[in-house]
Amino acid sequence: MGFKLLSKLLVYLTASIMAIASPLAFSVDSSGEYPTVSEIPVGEVRLYQIADGVWSHIATQSFDGAVYPSNGLIVRDGDELLLIDTAWGAKNTAALLAEIEKQIGLPVTRAVSTHFHDDRVGGVDVLRAAGVATYASPSTRRLAEVEGNEIPTHSLEGLSSSGDAVRFGPVELFYPGAAHSTDNLIVYVPSASVLYGGCAIYELSRTSAGNVADADLAEWPTSIERIQQHYPEAQFVIPGHGLPGGLDLLKHTTNVVKAHTNRSVVE
């Protein structure tokens, strides 16, 4: 069995187990497998329904001669939608809004960016022009300005110390501490036991640490421990890039980060 097929099978099995364990909360999309990078042309966006009122959005972007996937989250909030992270750029984010209108038909009224990198804030200006209120932590807003990236308009308070959590509509926002970046936030959907790890969490097929220019490698494993301790009931975990899975993604990420750190020390 090929690795790609095995990865998709694991996603399907995880979703099936969740649907059985929580039949009222989960209505997993039966329309197909989780979209992969090879299936999404740059400039297009796919939506994948995880649970009743919960979707991931998947886009792709060219970077350094390669094409990478990027995940975000959409959560229903009454007759409105909360968006977590842009679709990595203005063109993708405009396509995301169009796809949401086509498939869901509810307005996106608020959006949260989970850290300051372009795959999370690139497209904020498109959201703002569409009347979406954009939010991020003060740290993310400051770092985005320093980096020359787009800056969300509103500040999220109460997320300055490791372990801080605040309720934001249908989700809980959690600051686990520094990891992929010093400002990275985690998003949890309690009604569906869905954990969105953003770039602080890796997919299972990833074996290298990737972009760690703004990471705190020493603190990252401790931050992941905080996530595990705060959300032990999480059933569906979405990484910032690639295929979702279960809580095993947290341990896998820790292993990859520690291996990278150990290699760096040896070198």
Rank of each mutant, 00 (worst) to 15 (best):
residue 176 P to G: 14
residue 77 D to N: 04
residue 181 S to K: 01
residue 209 A to C: 06
residue 82 L to I: 13
residue 174 F to W: 03
residue 133 A to C: 12
residue 210 G to P: 11
residue 126 V to T: 04
residue 32 G to M: 04
residue 205 S to N: 15
residue 111 A to E: 14
residue 201 I to D: 03
residue 130 A to K: 13
residue 53 G to P: 08
residue 256 V to L: 13
residue 262 N to Y: 09
residue 155 S to W: 06
residue 34 Y to Q: 13
residue 91 K to F: 10
residue 114 T to R: 00
residue 138 P to D: 13
residue 183 D to W: 00
residue 12 Y to G: 10
residue 142 R to S: 09
residue 109 T to G: 13
residue 244 P to A: 14
residue 108 V to I: 14
residue 129 A to L: 15
residue 202 Y to F: 09
residue 160 S to V: 13
residue 45 V to P: 11
residue 188 Y to W: 06
residue 220 W to K: 00
residue 86 T to Y: 02
residue 256 V to C: 11
residue 20 I to D: 04
residue 156 L to G: 02
residue 193 S to F: 09
residue 130 A to N: 07
residue 36 T to M: 14
residue 87 A to T: 01
residue 39 E to F: 06
residue 52 D to M: 08
residue 255 N to D: 04
residue 42 V to E: 13
residue 179 A to W: 03
residue 52 D to S: 05
residue 218 A to Q: 07
residue 78 G to L: 09
residue 202 Y to I: 05
residue 78 G to Y: 12
residue 195 L to C: 00
residue 123 G to M: 02
residue 102 K to R: 14
residue 33 E to A: 10
residue 6 L to G: 09
residue 44 E to S: 10
residue 215 A to G: 11
residue 91 K to M: 15
residue 196 Y to E: 00
residue 11 V to H: 08
residue 88 W to S: 00
residue 144 A to E: 03
residue 120 R to M: 08
residue 150 E to W: 09
residue 115 H to R: 00
residue 12 Y to D: 14
residue 202 Y to K: 07
residue 239 P to K: 01
residue 169 G to W: 04
residue 209 A to V: 10
residue 43 G to T: 13
residue 166 V to R: 10
residue 242 G to D: 03
residue 174 F to P: 02
residue 40 I to M: 08
residue 258 K to L: 10
residue 176 P to S: 12
residue 133 A to Q: 11
residue 260 H to V: 11
residue 48 Y to D: 09
residue 124 V to N: 09
residue 19 A to P: 13
residue 42 V to N: 13
residue 34 Y to A: 10
residue 233 E to A: 08
residue 11 V to C: 06
residue 54 V to E: 02
residue 236 F to Q: 07
residue 41 P to W: 10
residue 222 T to L: 09
residue 32 G to K: 10
residue 183 D to L: 00
residue 164 D to K: 08
residue 264 S to L: 13
residue 148 G to K: 15
residue 81 L to K: 00
residue 84 I to K: 02
residue 35 P to I: 14
residue 103 Q to M: 11
residue 208 S to D: 09
residue 231 Y to Q: 01
residue 194 V to H: 01
residue 91 K to H: 12
residue 231 Y to R: 03
residue 229 Q to L: 14
residue 71 N to H: 01
residue 11 V to S: 07
residue 119 D to V: 01
residue 44 E to L: 14
residue 3 F to S: 05
residue 147 E to M: 13
residue 165 A to K: 15
residue 14 T to F: 14
residue 147 E to K: 10
residue 197 G to I: 01
residue 170 P to I: 15
residue 13 L to V: 09
residue 197 G to N: 04
residue 255 N to H: 09
residue 66 A to W: 06
residue 80 E to N: 14
residue 54 V to Q: 02
residue 115 H to D: 00
residue 258 K to M: 13
residue 63 F to G: 09
residue 12 Y to K: 05
residue 91 K to V: 15
residue 236 F to K: 14
residue 263 R to D: 10
residue 115 H to E: 00
residue 15 A to R: 06
residue 228 Q to S: 12
residue 119 D to Q: 00
residue 186 I to Q: 00
residue 90 A to H: 14
residue 24 L to N: 09
residue 165 A to E: 12
residue 70 S to P: 03
residue 108 V to G: 02
residue 99 E to D: 15
residue 243 L to Y: 14
residue 86 T to R: 01
residue 241 H to V: 00
residue 221 P to I: 11
residue 98 A to I: 04
residue 242 G to E: 02
residue 151 I to L: 11
residue 231 Y to G: 01
residue 63 F to E: 10
residue 158 G to C: 04
residue 184 N to T: 02
residue 110 R to C: 04
residue 92 N to F: 01
residue 90 A to Q: 11
residue 132 V to C: 04
residue 75 V to W: 01
residue 94 A to C: 14
residue 133 A to R: 09
residue 241 H to T: 00
residue 43 G to F: 05
residue 81 L to P: 02
residue 11 V to K: 05
residue 93 T to E: 00
residue 187 V to S: 05
residue 259 A to L: 07
residue 83 L to W: 01
residue 136 A to R: 03
residue 53 G to S: 08
residue 239 P to N: 01
residue 53 G to M: 09
residue 125 D to K: 09
residue 253 T to A: 02
residue 123 G to Q: 02
residue 248 D to M: 09
residue 32 G to V: 06
residue 92 N to P: 14
residue 225 E to V: 11
residue 198 G to K: 00
residue 80 E to Y: 15
residue 221 P to M: 13
residue 222 T to R: 12
residue 211 N to V: 12
residue 101 E to C: 14
residue 235 Q to G: 08
residue 203 E to G: 12
residue 87 A to I: 00
residue 267 E to Y: 15
residue 21 A to E: 07
residue 111 A to K: 03
residue 99 E to R: 14
residue 192 A to T: 10
residue 219 E to Q: 12
residue 111 A to M: 15
residue 77 D to H: 06
residue 121 V to H: 01
residue 202 Y to A: 06
residue 148 G to N: 13
residue 65 G to C: 03
residue 195 L to T: 02
residue 178 A to H: 05
residue 121 V to M: 04
residue 218 A to N: 09
residue 140 T to E: 02
residue 68 Y to K: 05
residue 75 V to Q: 02
residue 59 A to Y: 03
residue 17 I to G: 04
residue 56 S to V: 07
residue 109 T to Q: 08
residue 126 V to P: 03
residue 15 A to D: 09
residue 167 R to D: 04
residue 23 P to G: 08
residue 73 L to W: 01
residue 56 S to A: 07
residue 153 T to M: 12
residue 267 E to M: 14
residue 218 A to D: 10
residue 173 L to Y: 02
residue 117 H to K: 00
residue 220 W to D: 01
residue 202 Y to V: 08
residue 176 P to H: 02
residue 1 M to Y: 03
residue 174 F to I: 12
residue 167 R to T: 10
residue 115 H to N: 03
